[in-house]
């Protein structure tokens, strides 16, 4: 496994894309810190980057990478190596290099500008989002043998979680406005990793926004230990279920 992981990492690094991704995040973070001296505001602006760019990059890169490594996988499959091992080392290799690029991309400028403590929550959520969308990327890749089609599926995932899903929530809460909606909304948002990550992050940086009557309810929920465990568990579920499905499909798909 470690041997395999080494090769996957070499492969990802050789692709240089991760380097560009890292440079991009460094540039954006640096720019935001330069534009605004208030770390809290920087974090809010970074939030938008993380909720849009990180999932997009992660899911598309993962899908493309999977197809680009097809030969590599074929080669490995002729060797006495379990598919699970091949798959998981691919996953860990891709996810960890993207995660590292993200961590260093946000973290280093933050340290340089003295805002490291403020970005901790963003780093945590960003990690979860990275792992989740790498999982979803593998899922998209496992759903089609055609590269273009798989990338299409990946983009669809992204636009669904980043945009369409929230539109649906908005529509639902508006339509059922006469009913108590706190718990249904809570459940609905938990079913979208981006929403969940956004809320957890907002509660740590932008508390006043969520402080209306309803906000207090959510604050109370997410603020206590149960809520933290719940959101952590949900975020983990979001990393794991697409990964599990993708692994299952990979184990039973023809190559």
């Amino acid at each position: 496994m470690t041997q395999m992981l080494k090769y996957v990492l070499q492969d990802v690094i050789r692709a240089r894309f991760v380097l560009f991704y890292w440079l991009f995040i460094v540039a954006v973070t640096t720019l935001l810190f330069q534009l605004d001296s208030d770390p809290a505001k920087v974090v809010v602006s970074l939030l938008n980057v993380i909720l849009l760019v990180v999932p997009l990059v992660c899911i598309v890169f993962t899908t493309i990478h999977f197809f680009n490594s097809y030969e590599f996988i074929l080669l490995l499959m002729a060797q006495p190596i379990a598919r699970k091992t091949v798959f998981l080392s691919q996953y860990i290799g891709v996810a960890s290099s993207l995660a590292l690029a993200f961590l260093a991309g946000v973290g280093l400028p933050a340290i340089a500008f003295g805002g490291a403590a403020k970005v901790l929550s963003i780093l945590g959520i960003g990690l979860f989002i990275t792992f989740t969308f790498v999982s979803l990327g593998f899922l998209a890749a496992s759903l089609s043998r055609d590269k273009a089609k798989a990338i299409g599926i990946a983009l669809l995932f992204w636009i669904y979680f980043a945009l369409i899903y929230d539109g649906l929530i908005l529509w639902v809460v508006y339509a059922f406005n006469d009913y108590p909606l706190e718990i249904p909304t809570l459940i609905l948002t938990s079913l979208n990793p981006l929403d969940l990550g956004r809320i957890v992050m907002l509660l740590s940086i932008d508390v006043s926004a969520l402080m209306g009557y309803t906000g207090a309810f959510f604050k109370e929920f997410f603020g206590n230990l149960t809520g933290e465990i719940f959101s952590l568990a949900m975020l983990s579920v979001w990393v794991l279920w697409p990964l599990w499905v993708a692994l299952h499909r990979f184990k039973h798909n023809d190559l």
């Binding site: 492969d11 097809y70 030969e71 590599f72 080669l75």
Partner: peptide, 12 residues
């Protein structure tokens, strides 16, 4: 030992 019809290898 397997020798495929067309050997595909990681290009880099």
């Amino acid at each position: 030992g397997y020798m495929p019809q067309v050997g595909q290898y990681p290009a880099g």
